[in-house]
Design a protein around this nucleic acid. Sequence first.
DNA 1: TGCCAGGCATCTA
DNA 2: TAGATGCATGGC
Length: 276
Amino acid sequence: MAGITKSYKVAADGMDLEATLFCGQSFAWQRQEDGLFAGVAGTRGLLAAQQGDELILSNPGGGTLSDEDLAFWRNYFDLDRDYGALLDRFRGDGALAACVAHAGGIRVLRQPFWDTLLSFLLSQNNHIPRITAIAKRLREEFGEALPGGLHAFPAPERLAPLAVEDLAGLQAGYRAKYLLDAARRVAGGQLSGQALAALSDSAAREMLMAISGVGPKVADCVLLYGLGRRDVVPMDVWIKRAMDRLFPGGMPSCAAGEAGLAQQYIFCWARDNLPK
DNA sequence: TGCCAGGCATCTA
DNA sequence: TAGATGCATGGC
């Protein structure tokens, strides 16, 4: 019924929604005054909250979420992965166990490729709060308006014809030209999530690094968060410091497809426990 | 007021 | 080829 929002309860299975949304893997969410979390992925918007061990999902524009929407968000929040078993395996490694104890409520989101690429182009030499603020300005100035006052990340075709001066209002600094180069490559058909999905990790990384402003770290963030490559470990300063401190013999022996998930717990532990 | 930020491009030796 | 430096901006 129009104007009435129907909420859906989904088992959170030990998830910490707030930690998941604001741990530095996504810049598409914000906390509203009413305490709900509002976010976008592709051209979908969502309101989310947590009550105990359940997520409450609702449509920002009112009305119902379709079965297709629910399936999309289930996948987005990685709800069908058995995190209980995964975390039990991680607890088997002494050092990794400490990281899981610190941040085990985090789930690694499955974000759209393009949203992720734009977000991590903004992350270069930047702070999480400021990345979030620039990403919000990017969506609100150039993105498609969605129900509930939300805005999608702008389509590549929307950004491609713009000039750097057109992005001045974003206050993204030297990163603005990176957004335009990426948009022109995607809009021009030189690059796509589909094409990258067909490549090996190393080949996809190489293709991403052809974009101006994409180095090894940003490429690996896009592979992990935006293309579901769960073995990829983005090597930022915190991971390097944690490796020196916790894993001098190398990354813990995670099963195939899990090293990228482990790095999220290691990153959060390092950021919150090692000296600045 | 200065340092630093989920880095990268460019310059220099 | 490896190491050093500059880059825009704002939070702390």
